[in-house]
Simulated scan of single mutants.
Amino acid sequence: MQSSDLKNLKIAVVGAGYGGAAAAKALSLLGADVGVYEQATTIREVGAGIGLRPATLERFGQWGIFDAIAKVSSPSDYFEILTATGEPLMKEEWPAAGERKQTRLIHRGDFIDALLGVLPQGMVHLGHRLRTVQDKGGSAVLAFENGATVEADLVVGADGIKSVVRQRLFSDKGPVFSGEHAYRAVVPVDDTHGMVTDDNLRMYIGRGTKVYLLPLRHRGQVSFDITALCADSTWNPRVTKDDLLRTVEGFDPRLVDITRGLDMSTVNIRAVYDIDPVDTWHSDSVVLVGDAAHSMLHHQGQGANSAIEDAGALADALRAADSPREALAHYQAARKPVTDTLQAVSRQGWTEDAIDDVFPGQRPAGQQPAGQAPETSASGTAGTSAAAAAGE
């Protein structure tokens, strides 16, 4: 689209998470008039650490915000998978891409704060819980529970796994339970009993349980995540310290000690959900990005990175197309095949026996599969390429 047309474009972004904040930044750089509408009255991101991949960092470089992200993150060289007791299964450097030949580890809260911090003051409107969305062809109208209405030339639905935009216009299917729980906490490096000595992500695989140690060196902390099989599909289940200790039975005693030392009031506990692929992401004036379009399980670490790539691809499509409607079709054509694959791969999960399928030839010499029984969760077993698993 011509720059003059882009500057006359009014865009309403629903949601101020990763995808919404990134879309707001990318679209505002086109010169469009962008407003972000977030249901929360304060921004508070719970959870723990994530990895930002090279392609994501390339986008940040293009948008002029790489330094803001770098200040609150640490570079990482490789990803390592070990057995429950610490025997090495796989070690691979993160794939490089473009000029940003690194992966950076960051706390979710710091990431959201950094993204929102580079948006113009007054762009984000809190306390706007979406009630309805109507596509009128050349524009769309949002109605919020606080009584406000907003009409825009383009609405970007970035309102997460429970997206109202998706459910009103594109798919009435709800989130899908994976058969797992995720328990996440941030602990001081000094409380990890010597297990964290560098800036690299490690995953320990046991029978039905995966334990992640993701260093956040810039904070002097470590993201400690346990993903375990559990049939309880309650969205925010009640879990005790004894429950957590049972999930790490047989693991390295130091991992058990970290678990035993957790302050349960600081542990984020949730059942793990994703969504089935959505056939269509856009109408004439409304489009989905991030988890609203393709929420996926966390096993491959692709959720936040995919949301950032969506934002960049949407801005690219608007710049190149002759109209918003044409741009939305190009955006979906570019991104949906990628995220459909990542959703499927993420559902495959990880088991020790599957490491050779995921990373052929990467197992240390003489290290044979331990004969561990495969996981029986709904997510199945792994079977993707190293590049996809580690993030392209």
Rank of each mutant, 00 (worst) to 15 (best):
G51M: 09
L9R: 08
L9Y: 10
F224N: 12
D316Q: 10
G391Y: 04
S306E: 06
A387H: 12
E352V: 02
V267A: 01
T209R: 03
A344I: 05
A16G: 09
P337E: 13
I269G: 00
M203A: 11
V345M: 02
Q372P: 05
F144Y: 08
R238E: 15
A24H: 04
D274T: 00
V155M: 09
K7G: 10
T351N: 10
V287F: 02
R319A: 14
V124L: 15
A231D: 15
Y204D: 07
V358S: 00
R129K: 15
L288H: 03
I81R: 06
V150N: 06
V287A: 06
F111R: 00
A333D: 14
L213C: 06
G391F: 03
L6F: 14
N268G: 07
K162G: 10
I258D: 02
N200F: 00
M296A: 06
L314T: 03
D172A: 14
L30F: 09
F224I: 13
H218Q: 12
A387L: 15
L262N: 07
P175F: 01
A344H: 13
K210N: 06
T376N: 11
A12D: 01
D257L: 07
Y18E: 01
A386V: 08
T83G: 02
T85L: 12
E375W: 01
W350Q: 00
M264K: 06
S139V: 06
A271D: 03
E45L: 04
V222Y: 00
R319V: 02
M264S: 04
T339M: 08
R254P: 02
M123W: 04
A320Y: 10
L216Y: 01
P253H: 04
T209P: 04
R319C: 08
K210F: 05
A96H: 14
D33C: 11
K101D: 10
A321D: 07
D199L: 07
G61E: 12
T280Q: 15
A23N: 08
S285F: 07
G137W: 14
A55K: 14
Y183M: 12
S163L: 04
A152P: 05
R100I: 09
D242P: 03
E326L: 15
G208C: 12
R219V: 06
F66C: 11
G383I: 05
P237L: 08
W350Y: 14
Y273H: 13
L245Q: 13
Q167M: 10
M195P: 01
D190Y: 01
V14W: 04
H218V: 07
L27R: 06
E180L: 14
E93S: 11
G303C: 02
R217C: 03
G122S: 10
M203Q: 12
D276K: 02
G157M: 03
T132N: 10
L130G: 07
E58K: 15
D263V: 03
P369C: 09
